[in-house]
């Protein structure tokens, strides 16, 4: 599987990453090699095989709808790179 530079740039945008020209080319080559290797899965006929997303035989796990203490606001905000009063501060979103 050979990736194009356009595909690399498209996936990077989806992943919120940005690459220099040089990085994008290196990633294109490395990801193409990995995807070529992964193509070996195509050798297997998996018609009718159920996909496994999870190995445990559990489905939904319910609990009582009881109110428990939350993380105090000050502690939750303590790691914020930028904040004002009780808010996280980010660059302007609406023009």
């Amino acid at each position: 599987m050979k990736l194009t530079r356009e595909e690399v740039n498209h996936v990077a945008r989806l992943a919120r990453l940005h690459f220099s020209e040089e990085e994008a080319e290196r990633f294109r080559e490395q990801l193409s090699a990995i995807l070529t290797y992964v193509e070996k899965l195509g050798e297997l006929d998996t018609t009718g095989v159920e996909p496994t997303s999870h190995v445990l035989p559990i489905r939904n796990v319910f609990r009582e709808d009881a109110v428990l203490p939350s993380l105090p606001r000050e502690e939750a905000l303590a790691n914020a790179p930028d904040r004002t009063e009780e808010f996280y501060r980010v660059p302007k979103i609406i023009e």
């Binding site: 990736l3 195509g42 297997l44 998996t46 996909p51 496994t52 997303s53």
Partner: peptide
């Protein structure tokens, strides 16, 4: 992140992610 985003992206999900989940079953 790039490889995972690619595998889950529109048009590739069936060929990569779902296929890998089936192989996991095997």
């Amino acid at each position: 992140i790039m490889l995972g985003t690619y595998s889950l992206s529109a048009g590739y999900y069936e060929a990569y992610y779902r296929k890998a989940q089936q192989v996991r079953t095997l």
